[in-house]
Simulated assay, not measured.
Amino acid sequence: YWLSSALPLASVIPPVVLAVVLRQTWDRRQATDIARSEAALRQFQPPLLADRIARDPGFLREPVQQTVAILFVDLSGFTRLSEQAGLTRTREFLKAFHTLIENEVTAHDGLVISFMGDGAMIAFGIPDPHADDAGHALSTAWALLKDMREWATGEEVSIGHPDLRVGVHFG
């Protein structure tokens, strides 16, 4: 009996092995593609939003109306200072300024929506609203004013003494 079943079993083994190898190769490629996509997502999106998109890719499919706090910051006198400083020093200044904003906003559970040259639009309550979003926006505004004034008087800022203008909206 075993001899009569040996040939059919032997003929089944190569296709099964091939199917297993192809499946593992396919799964590895998919895992690599997913990891690459997630790395690209994290490169262009803030950590708070990237985590939410990775966890729930469809959460932006339908429009959502919710209450958020929006904080706008802008440097006063920056145009004149950038004209005097030149391209390289202005770029270094903006990189340091954006880092200062990003660190403070992240510490207060906010999300930098966009940097617009010497300004930024920051949201609190995205992707998920919280009861204290307005408080976080105000405390971030005060912290940014304090940090900016300390930083602008330091040695790192060699292009002048810009000040920060702040606007907050909740609704």
Rank of each mutant, 00 (worst) to 15 (best):
F97V: 06
G86E: 11
R149W: 07
R23G: 02
G160S: 05
D147M: 13
R52I: 07
G110R: 04
V21A: 04
L111R: 01
Q65W: 11
A143P: 04
Q66M: 14
A31N: 00
G160K: 03
T153I: 09
I34V: 12
A31Q: 08
P127D: 08
G117L: 06
L87E: 14
G86M: 13
A96H: 10
M148G: 08
D132I: 01
I101W: 12
I34H: 08
P47M: 01
G77M: 01
I70N: 04
A85F: 00
W151F: 11
V21W: 00
K95H: 00
T153D: 10
G110T: 11
E102V: 09
F115P: 11
R28G: 01
K146C: 06
M116H: 08
A152H: 13
K95N: 06
L144R: 04
Q84Y: 06
A50S: 11
Q24E: 12
T90R: 06
A120M: 09
P129G: 05
R80H: 03
W151S: 11
F97I: 07
W26A: 10
V73S: 03
R80P: 00
G117W: 12
Q30L: 08
E102T: 15
V64G: 01
W151D: 07
P63W: 14
H108N: 09
A31P: 01
H108F: 11
L138G: 12
V105Q: 05
D128Q: 15
A141E: 03
T90W: 00
R28C: 00
P57H: 05
S37P: 02
V64I: 08
T140Y: 10
V157G: 03
P63G: 10
R149T: 15
N103R: 14
V157H: 07
K146H: 05
T90N: 01
L41R: 01
A123D: 03
H136V: 03
R89A: 10
A69F: 02
Q45V: 14
F97R: 01
L81E: 02
A120L: 11
P129W: 00
F124R: 08
L145A: 05
I126R: 02
L145I: 03
L94R: 00
N103F: 07
R28V: 05
R42G: 05
I101R: 15
F97K: 04
Q66C: 15
H161A: 13
F97D: 02
M121H: 08
H108P: 12
L22A: 06
P129E: 05
L144F: 00
R23V: 05
T25Q: 09
G117A: 09
A137L: 15
L60M: 09
R91F: 00
Q66I: 10
T99S: 13
F97P: 07
T99I: 07
R89Q: 09
W151P: 10
A96R: 08
A39S: 15
W142E: 02
W142K: 00
S139V: 13
D132Q: 12
E92V: 01
V157I: 07
R91Q: 00
V157F: 12
G135M: 10
E102S: 15
A123S: 10
G110N: 12
R80A: 12
R42H: 07
